[in-house]
Design a protein around this nucleic acid. Structure first.
Lengths: 106, 106
DNA sequence: TTAATAGTTCATAGTTTTGTGAACTGTTAA
DNA sequence: TTAACAGTTCACAAAACTATGAACTATTAA
C-alpha cells in the first residue's frame, strides 16, 4: 500500500472524530455501550441525523454495532479511540489556556 | 463554557487531523521542526495549498510556528498530537486487519 | 534600490459534508 | 395480520472545505 493511500485512510479515520455530535457520542460511549435510542435521548436532534453519524463512525472503524432484538447497541471499537480523543481534548485545553494567557497580558 | 461549545471546539481540533496532507505533515514533524520549504519538498503540491493547511493546523492549536530570517519553522504544539495520531493509525490498522479477515473467510 | 527568496492571502470554482423530512426495513406485541 | 416500535436509507438544499493561480508582504542579497 502506498504512503499516500495510508495518509488518506488515516485521515478518513481521523475525520470521523471531527464533528461535535460525534465527539459527544464518543464521550458517551467511553465506559459502556449504549443503544441508539439512549444516545438519541442524550444528544437530541433528529434520529436520521444521528443514524447517519453513527453509520459514518462505524464504517470508518471507530464504532462497533450489535443488534439485540429491536435495539442496536453501539460501542467504541477500541479503547484507543477514547484515548486519542482524550489526548486531543488536552491539546484543546492547553491551546485555550495559551490563548487566555495572551489575552490577559493585554 | 457549555458542553456543546466544548464539543464544537474539540471537534474543530480533531477536524484539523482529518486531511491526508495534514496527516503527512504531522508524521513529518514527529521528531523535529521543519521549515515550510522542507515540508513542501516532501509533500509536493502548491505552496499556497500547503500554506493554507499549515495555517489551519496552527490556528487550531496543533502546530506552532516561529519565524527565523526568511524561513518559517513549523513544529507540533505538543507530543500529545503525535500520540493521538499514532493511536488513530493503530485504530486504522486494526480496522484494516478486521476487514481483511472477513474477506479471507469468503 | 532593485531583484530574489520565502511564504501568505485572496477570490473563486468544484467537491464534500451536513441537516432535514419522507419513505422504507426488520422485529416484536396485540 | 396488523399495528407499533426502533432505526436506516434516500433525495435534496444549504453550508463547509479544498485546490488553484494570481497578487501580495517581508526579509535578504546584489
Amino acid at each position: 500500500m502506498t504512503n499516500k493511500k495510508i495518509f488518506e485512510l488515516h485521515a478518513d479515520v481521523c475525520k470521523a472524530l471531527g464533528h461535535p455530535l460525534r465527539i459527544e457520542v464518543i464521550d458517551l460511549l467511553q465506559e459502556k455501550e449504549l443503544c441508539f435510542s439512549d444516545i438519541l435521548e442524550v444528544t437530541g436532534g433528529l434520529k436520521s441525523n444521528l443514524s447517519q453519524h453513527l453509520s459514518v463512525m462505524t464504517k470508518k472503524g471507530i464504532l462497533k454495532m450489535r443488534r439485540e432484538g429491536q435495539c442496536n447497541y453501539y460501542s467504541l471499537s477500541s479503547k484507543k479511540v477514547a484515548q486519542a480523543c482524550r489526548l486531543m481534548r488536552e491539546v484543546l485545553i492547553e491551546s485555550l489556556k495559551k490563548q487566555n494567557a495572551i489575552l490577559e497580558k493585554m
